[in-house]
Nucleic acid binder design. Structure first.
Lengths: 167, 167
DNA sequence: GAGAGATTGTTTGGATACGAACAAAAAGTA
DNA sequence: TACTTTTTGTTCGTATCCAAACAATCTCTC
């Protein structure tokens, strides 16, 4: 059993530790809950859906991006997966070893590498996407129907702002 | 310059690739944007605020939890930081080497280890928290004032559900 | 076309990140 | 008291993850 503090206990303790200081608790709650949620959902999906296929979260995201476009340059895959080029190199090494992705040099530009999906990769995604989506539905179900689009919009806006701040 | 697809382009491509299948696009948008946002915000804050102090995101979260409670058992710190016990051991090793945290055995229970903050750790957080909160305000500002609490509530609900699903 | 500059994927080094196995200590049981 | 069982933090092995350094390739300029 858990001995940890409840979220409410923690927030009260934070408020008391920061009493008197000009802190924007409202924004703090939004950001910290953003990470709590992302973390909890990620761990949940990794354990329930991904683990049985020997896939890490990032590996699945990369696989997802590759599936969406079928053929894509590594720089695009890295950016759309939200990871660095260096990380992608390692993840692709793993996915290639598992037999899900392929890599080949571009004929037009010798610097570029094109990422593709194998037949096994496509078959895996065909099974994985509906299963994954079922869990997404369960998770989003805790948000009132009419507010899900709004939620997605706000998250998109936050993403855009954060990315723009990095130039 | 970016050659990548825009988020809208990607979502259109996904819709076309999944045409005909019974997919809950609404929930998919919520979940995928949750991760995009968390990822973008994390990278942004790591680069703008944390990097100059040699702190990783996780190290900051652990430091934050330790600061909130001043003295806390490792199992609590791990759970509230959203990381495993094994990961915490490594992060605490780093933070201890940087001189920000301390570790000592509990007298009452020889299995437990109590995490504490050094004077340097407290001083660092005293400077870091307001700076961090300023960025949180900027990020949350893209969400209409009246909807921030709602947003935090929804994220809390998602977290609760995801954690509950893991028993 | 020759050299400077920019772009791309990989390698390197160090810090996360997890599950599983482990040793130490506490709690439960007889 | 002896034993089993449970709990806790660490270690181990493996897979991410990033910035910085790097080599290969392309582009630009003259």
């Amino acid at each position: 059993m858990t001995v940890s503090h409840t979220p409410t206990e923690t927030e009260n303790q934070v408020a008391s530790r920061l009493a008197g200081q000009p802190i924007d608790f409202n924004s703090m709650a939004v950001v910290s809950n953003l990470f709590r949620a992302a973390n909890a959902v990620r761990n949940h999906l990794e354990r329930t859906v991904l683990a049985q296929h020997n896939l890490s979260w990032t590996a699945f995201v990369v696989l997802w991006v590759a599936w969406v476009w079928q053929e894509s340059e590594t720089r695009c895959v890295a950016e759309e997966s939200g990871i660095s080029k260096a990380t992608l190199t390692g993840v692709l090494k793993t996915l290639e070893k598992l037999g899900f992705t392929t890599r080949r040099r571009s004929e037009k530009d010798g610097r570029l590498v094109i990422v593709g999906l194998t037949a096994e990769g496509n078959a895996l995604m065909q099974r994985l996407i509906p299963e994954f989506n079922k869990h997404e539905s369960e998770l989003a179900a805790v948000i009132p129907t009419g507010q899900r689009d709004e939620m997605a919009d706000h998250l998109r806006a936050v993403t855009t702002f954060a990315l723009a701040s990095d130039q």
